[in-house]
């Protein structure tokens, strides 16, 4: 039972993972159109990063390397369904590895706005469905260098965004938190692909202006018509250590029913969530 919080954390990470995959609806680069405003870029990037397809599934393998070089692995399947584009979503996570967390499942109803997410965790050895309290979204999940927020999505209204630069390939956005006390970074810079609107890299700066964290998309593939990040990394730029996430068996628009995201699935994962 003491494992609950950390499991919950990774699960959160898991969600995030499926949200990284994104789409491009075949729109041409903004070049030939009128200049996009910063808010439009942020909005499109948010949709591209977190709301592709009405639903989807992915297998995820995380390899966590600590500063000393030792390695841990996590494997799980994530199901995602969007309730409202740009708004609420539901996630279901089914763990496969390591064996001590096998058959654990995790359900999240993500709420955008003031309402906290609803989260449930199922511990198979006890047949226990546990409710998890809303937590700090800047928490890392066990051993992983991904944070809940940089994957499941940081509220676009929490930062002030400015367009620092437009390169051939990227919009480069500088983001400063409106409430600096609520977060550990002073600012972060994001490189957004001008074609797909996928965030390709984010660098987090501390109070000394030093980059201490980097999150980066390593490989993008088009799956079911959606450009999707299939490999990404989160790095501790100062202390060392990194986590690589690899996504496989990704499918979009698989017609997941609402009742997949209910307590029943915690005890008996749906077919789509099996490996």
């Amino acid at each position: 039972m003491n494992d609950l919080p950390k499991i919950a954390l990774w699960a959160v990470a898991a969600l995030a993972t499926l949200t990284l995959p994104v789409l491009a609806d075949g729109e041409a680069p903004g070049a030939d159109k009128k200049e996009l405003t910063v808010d439009e870029i942020v909005h499109k990037a948010n949709l591209a990063a977190y709301y592709q397809g009405a639903d989807g599934r992915s297998n995820v393998k995380m390899t966590i390397k600590d500063a000393g070089g030792s390695t841990r692995e996590r494997e799980f399947t994530v199901l995602r369904k969007t309730v409202k584009e740009g708004g609420d979503q539901k996630f279901f996570v089914h763990f496969h590895q390591p064996s001590d967390v096998r058959r654990m499942t995790y359900l999240v109803w993500k709420h955008v706005g003031d309402q906290d997410d609803d989260r449930w965790l199922y511990m198979p050895a006890l047949d226990l469905v546990k409710r998890i309290a809303a937590g700090d979204k800047r928490t890392s999940f066990v051993g992983s260098h991904f944070l809940y927020e940089d994957i499941s999505g940081r509220d676009v209204n929490d930062d002030t965004h400015t367009l620092a630069e437009t390169t051939d390939k990227h919009y480069v956005l500088k983001n400063v938190p409106k409430d600096p006390k609520a977060v550990e970074f002073a600012s972060y810079t994001v490189w957004i692909d001008r074609t797909t609107f996928l965030p390709m890299k984010a660098e987090y700066l501390n109070d000394q202006g030093k980059v201490y964290r980097v999150v980066e998309a390593l490989e993008v593939k088009t799956i079911d018509g959606f450009p999707t990040v299939v490999r990404s990394v989160a790095r501790d730029a100062l202390g060392g250590g990194e986590t690589v996430s690899e996504f496989s068996d990704i499918r979009y628009n698989i017609d997941l029913k609402d009742d997949v995201f209910e307590e029943r699935s915690l005890r008996r994962p749906p077919r789509e969530a099996r490996k």
Partner: peptide, 13 residues
């Protein structure tokens, strides 16, 4: 009371 530390590999409760 549950406290996680050391990359959440250590659980104290």
């Amino acid at each position: 009371v549950t406290r996680l530390a050391m990359n959440q590999n250590l659980t104290l409760s």
